[in-house]
Amino acid sequence: MKSKFTPPIGKISNINGQCITLIGNDIDTDRIIPARFLKCVSFDSLGESVFEDDRKTLKGKHPFDLEENKNASILIVNSNFGCGSSREHAPQALLRWGIKAIIGESFADIFYSNCIAIGIPCCTLPKKAIEEIQNYCNNKLLFLEIDLKKSIAKSEDLNFNLEIKVSSRKMFLSGEWDATSTLLENENLIENKFNQLPYIKFNTNL
C-alpha cells in the first residue's frame, strides 16, 4: 500500500495523476469489492481488498497489481462501470487504494452518486476516446491533468473534452459535494415538507 490515506475535502477542481486502465463492460460492485469484505463497521481497510477475486484469478497480472500502476490515481473504464449492488464500499475501496477520479464510457447510477458523495469525480468520454487512452497505456504510462472547471483532460500528447454532469461539476468546484451541510441549511423547508405530506397523518402506527 501507498502513503497514508487522506480523504478528499473541500473544493476539487484539478486532479493530476497517472492513469490505470481496466478493460471490460458491466464491471459490477461485487467484483470491485466482494461481499465478504462488507462485514465491517468501518471503510478503513477496504483499499487492499479492491478487486480481490479478479486479482487472485490473474495472479499478479491484474492492473491493480502491476508495479508500474502502484502510484496511479485516475481510473479508466468502459461502460456501465459499477453496476449492481449499492455498496458504497466499492468506491470507498477504490478511493483507499488511491483512485481520485474515474473516466469511463458510462457509469451505473448508484455507483455514480456514491462517488460524488465521497469526492471522486466521474467523467465520461466516448468509446473511441476511451479506447485511445487504453491503447496509449498499452505502450507507455499516461499522466493526465483533469481540469473540472474547463471540463478537459490533457497530457503531453493527448487532449480530451470531458463530459461531467453539470450538478456534479458545480458541487466539486464549490466544495458542496459533501451534501449533509447543504441539505441541513433547509431545515425549515424540511419541516414544512414533513407537515404537508398527506401520508404522515394517515400513518398513525409508524
Binding site: 449499492s86 464500499h89 448508484i110 458523495a117 465521497i118 459533501d178 451534501a179
Partner: peptide
C-alpha cells in the same frame, strides 16, 4: 423507491432528505 449508498444513508438520517437528479 431507490437504493442509496452509505453517505446518503447518513444524509437521510441527519436530514430525512437526499440530493438527487
Amino acid at each position: 423507491a431507490f437504493g442509496i449508498g452509505t453517505s446518503q444513508v447518513r444524509d437521510v438520517l441527519a436530514t430525512q432528505t437526499i440530493a438527487m437528479n
